[in-house]
């Protein structure tokens, strides 16, 4: 069979189209993830991660220093286990603390890493001791209402 340039162009077109479909499926849809650069993994346990998602940023002093790698459920303590992939260029003291924050009122959630004072540095695979989970808005409102009610009751007995 004779091969023509027309075949070549149609081939390029079909390959590009299928490539675009794969791009949509893998990169845009939720069927895979990629990462680049050297990172080291650190574990952190949270009682509640709220709406944290894989690949959310890990920030220290507002600078992105890594990404959330994996989110697992630890059946031993019934806690969320989050694997943080931290950029190899940045080292943190072993007693650093992690907390889940929200950027903006409706914004995405990220992990804020607060450096400690330990001379020893975090090693790959270490676990962070000090963590603070996401703030659940409903609990916060509930607490606020209880406090108000307590105050009102206390004020009532004094009078």
């Amino acid at each position: 069979m004779k091969r023509t340039t027309l075949d070549l162009w149609v081939g390029i077109f079909v390959v590009a189209g299928i490539g675009a479909l794969l791009f949509l499926a893998l990169k845009v849809g939720n069927m895979g993830a990629f990462d680049s650069g050297a990172t080291y993994a650190v574990n952190a346990h949270f009682d509640n991660i709220g709406g944290l998602k894989p690949r959310a940023p890990v920030k220290s002093a507002g600078v992105v220093v890594g990404r959330v790698g994996e989110i697992l459920f630890d059946t031993k303590n019934y806690e969320a286990q989050v694997v943080l992939d931290i950029d190899g260029r940045y080292r943190f003291p072993a007693d650093s603390s992690a907390s889940i924050m929200t950027s903006g009122l409706l914004g995405e959630q990220y992990i804020a890493l607060e450096a400690g004072g330990d001379p020893k540095m975090l090693q790959p695979g270490d676990s962070l001791k000090l963590t603070q989970g996401a703030v659940v808005l409903e609990n916060l409102i509930g607490q606020f209402l209880y406090n108000k009610a307590d105050e009102a009751a206390a004020g009532g007995t004094q009078e």
């Binding site: 990169k27 845009v28 849809g29 993830a33 690949r55 992105v64 995405e108």
Partner: peptide
């Protein structure tokens, strides 16, 4: 960049 892609991947269903 990470939020751009991760939120997209979380929201777009195959």
């Amino acid at each position: 960049e990470g939020a751009f892609w991760s939120q997209m991947q979380a929201a777009v269903d195959f």
